[in-house]
Design a protein around this nucleic acid. Sequence first.
DNA 1: TTAGAATATTATAATATTCTAATATGTTAC
DNA 2: GTAACATATTAGAATATTATAATATTCTAA
Lengths: 101, 101
Amino acid sequence: MLRKASGAMLGRCESAARSLKLLAHPQRLRILCHLADGEKTVRDLEALCGASQSLVSQSLARMRSEGLVACRRRGQFVAYHIEDPRILKLIVSLHEVFCPS
Amino acid sequence: MLRKASGAMLGRCESAARSLKLLAHPQRLRILCHLADGEKTVRDLEALCGASQSLVSQSLARMRSEGLVACRRRGQFVAYHIEDPRILKLIVSLHEVFCPS
DNA sequence: TTAGAATATTATAATATTCTAATATGTTAC
DNA sequence: GTAACATATTAGAATATTATAATATTCTAA
């Protein structure tokens, strides 16, 4: 018994895919994994991920514009955290699935 | 306390990102959601997703080449199913996160 | 206010992805 | 065999993504 996909399903897949696209990149995924561990500054993330300042900043900007992360200034630094609780849940799931202990 | 990302983490992010890239597309995500519901033929998926034969077949081929799905011939048809149990888990997680009941 | 460090932005070349159309292959029924 | 249907593959234009380099902004300390 095949039911045509509902409009709701189409929309949810669009939306989920848009978020997933941001996770589907090694650099951004690494950033999110580190943020899942707690707030980090751009500088921290550069060091943790071994990526250039520009790339880290661009990655964060893109994820910020989609509401995945948010930031606040801490003195000289800008500290980022995961803003969307759904993304945090996904990172946890990804860890369970891809990082068996 | 910042620890540099381990080599293992780098590798796992690469691998997870490679899989996620295949989920991060509305058309392919729809296909996977339908397959999570049970085996489907290419023809079924064309109808369910409202996509062209070529596109559905290409999408399936790409996911097949990465081991996400597998297929078997059923008479005149070819029926696909989710092959990688990790992908099935992810689809379930995505449903929990993006499709609140 | 100036220097220097941290972050953001912009432009761009290189590369990858997506979708469509055309064609090929495989299967069943006759 | 051939017709008709199901699936796969190929080629290609349109578009999107990525990483680097260069520059701009924002803050702090002196």
